[in-house]
């Protein structure tokens, strides 16, 4: 045997996922649907937040959701109360969604019938950061009960997100939530990120966030028509 030789190959490990995500993004653009993915830790109130989002957008927009979960279909059952089309992606032992799972789940849906599609990732602030799902907007959700330094503990996912939502604001006083500290943490790991502070339960702050989504959809539609 000869000495080992070093051969340069330069292969992106997630290329397959990225190729599918890219195809999905083109498909979403062609259909005129604005796609938002949601990432958060378990128990941050993602499903309640999404249920309220779907319910409140429905009078004006056609909305639907894909929900990733490890084993149960509880989230999909809860979200179905919003009357929006909801499909569960059960990931088994996998801790995150991949683009291929989104592609499979969307096979029998006509995207042209939708204005907004929400993709709820598995509750996890680590693994989902590596996988592009073809979304237009990645929304990271944290609740006031999780502590102001959450972004500093999970910088990669916050950095990869486009917008942050701080929820359960109705509990802020009870847990002595320091809003400035939280904002500084977010801005430190993701400078310039827009932040919404709201309560999905009471509805406080929801209007501003829903308006923002409406604007982003309108912008995408406007770009598509040029």
């Amino acid at each position: 045997m000869s000495e080992p030789r070093l051969v340069e190959v330069r292969r992106n490990v997630l290329k397959q996922n990225d190729v599918i995500a890219h195809a999905l993004r083109s498909q979403f653009r062609a259909a005129g649907v604005f796609v938002v993915s949601l990432v958060s830790s378990p128990g941050s109130g993602k499903t309640t937040f999404l249920e309220k989002t779907l319910t409140q957008l429905q009078p004006r927009y056609r909305v639907a959701a894909l929900v990733g979960d490890l084993a149960t279909e509880n989230d999909a059952v809860r979200l179905a109360r919003s009357k929006a089309p909801v499909k569960q992606i059960t990931t088994g032992t996998l801790c995150h969604l991949e683009a291929a799972m989104v592609q499979n789940a969307l096979q029998d849906w006509n995207l042209h019938d939708l204005d907004f599609l929400f993709i709820e990732n598995v509750g996890n602030l680590v693994c989902p950061s590596s996988y592009d799902l073809g979304e237009n907007l990645r929304l990271v959700l944290m609740s006031v009960t999780e502590g102001e330094d959450k972004p500093l503990k999970y910088p990669t996912i916050f950095n990869s997100a486009d917008v942050a939502v701080v929820t359960k604001n109705e509990l802020a006083d009870a847990v002595e939530f320091d809003w400035n500290a939280a904002r500084n943490s977010i801005q430190s790991v993701r400078p310039g990120m827009q932040i919404f502070r709201l309560s999905a339960k009471t509805g406080e702050g929801m209007e501003e966030y829903l308006k923002f989504l409406g604007q982003r959809l309108a912008e995408q539609t406007a770009v598509a028509q040029i």
Binding site: M1, S2, P4, R5, L6, V7, E8, V9, R10, R11, N12, V13, L14, S130
Partner: peptide
């Protein structure tokens, strides 16, 4: 980056 940059290969003489 998450990239397989190179492989070390053993070739038969």
């Amino acid at each position: 980056e998450l990239e397989v940059f190179a492989i070390e290969v053993q070739e038969e003489e």
